[in-house]
């Protein structure tokens, strides 16, 4: 109970360092919370056991090779959509960011319009539009929708990164006689990417989470595979086991990527290379789809 004394000043500014009586009271609150949570968990478990969701017959399907293959194929499809969407949206983001930073006003206007429009639309509306109106296959529809949306968000991330690089860097590069493309490629972008890498990875978490939207347009991804098993009479409809397995894997993947983003951010903040120049502080962005990654 003494750990919170030092670590975060602003948090511990909210309460006095607990004395013996306060500490005893806090232990009491802690025990009460733990008991309440344990009771809740026990009640849910009891309910599920009563429904027979933990009977071996509901879990046996996961031992079947066909089921394992179905799940793995679904996971593979999810990762395929994610990889395609990630690569394409990074490319689109680079193009749109270059457009928004262009010296030619019409290029700038068009890119700004595209970025603002695709960021304002719900990603699902775009996916449905591509799927229904343009009548393409589920995978290209999903990847195109994710690319348009995440590409626009990443364009803003890249642009913020480039504009946050200390202007002395740009001026020095021009003074050395570099052309504007060379200044961008050799001086500004490397420093911008270094500062923006955590935010970029956080945006990729959004893309990974949003691949599950493919479920709604009948793309045969992970959730789709889970549903096939969950509604199958032959396997006695093991809904809860499927939800447990699928969400553990999904949340695990997203958490790994999120942790990677915070790890990169911490590492970059400590790095001497970022201390030398004024760049935006590396910070993991929000993983809320639709919320801007940059604050």
């Amino acid at each position: 109970m003494t750990a919170h004394r030092s670590s975060r000043t602003s948090a511990s500014a909210l309460y006095d360092i607990p004395g013996p009586r306060a500490r005893a009271r806090h232990v009491g609150y802690g025990v009460a919370t733990a008991l309440a949570l344990a009771a809740l968990v026990a009640w849910v478990l009891h309910l599920l056991v009563d429904m027979g969701q933990f009977s071996s017959v509901k879990w046996r399907p996961f031992l079947y090779e066909g089921i394992q293959e179905l799940l793995l194929r679904g996971l593979g499809n999810t990762l395929k959509a994610f990889a395609l969407a990630a690569v394409l949206s990074l490319a689109l983001g680079a193009v749109l960011a270059a457009g928004r930073l262009s010296e030619h006003a019409p290029v700038r206007w068009v890119s700004t319009l595209l970025v603002e429009f695709f960021r304002a639309m719900p990603v699902l509306v775009m996916i449905f539009f591509i799927f229904v109106a343009l009548e393409v296959q589920p995978l290209p529809a999903l990847v195109a929708g994710l690319t348009l949306y995440n590409g626009s968000v990443l364009a803003e991330v890249f642009r913020t990164g480039v504009t946050s690089v200390d202007r002395g860097q740009r001026e020095a590069a021009y003074a050395l006689g570099l052309r504007k493309t060379q200044v961008m490629v050799h001086v500004l972008v490397p420093q911008a990417v270094r500062a923006m890498l955590p935010t970029i990875i956080s945006q990729l978490v959004v893309a990974l989470k949003d691949t599950s939207l493919g479920f709604l347009i009948t793309y045969q991804e992970f959730l789709h595979a889970g549903r096939l098993i969950a509604v199958n009479m032959d396997y006695t409809m093991p809904f809860i086991p499927v939800v447990i397995v699928v969400s553990a894997i999904y949340i695990g993947m997203c958490m790994l990527l999120s942790w990677f983003a915070t790890w990169v951010a911490r590492r970059e903040r400590r790095s001497v290379k970022t201390e030398a120049v004024a760049v935006a502080p590396p910070e993991a962005g929000s993983t809320m789809p639709g919320a801007p990654g940059v604050r």
């Binding site: 691949t211 599950s212 959730l223 939800v243 999904y250 949340i251 958490m255």
Partner: peptide, 17 residues
Amino acid sequence: VLRNTPLTLLFFAMLLG
């Protein structure tokens, strides 16, 4: 947990489950 859960999965678990 909630930040790393796909919203579709949450809907799936709640509305179908």
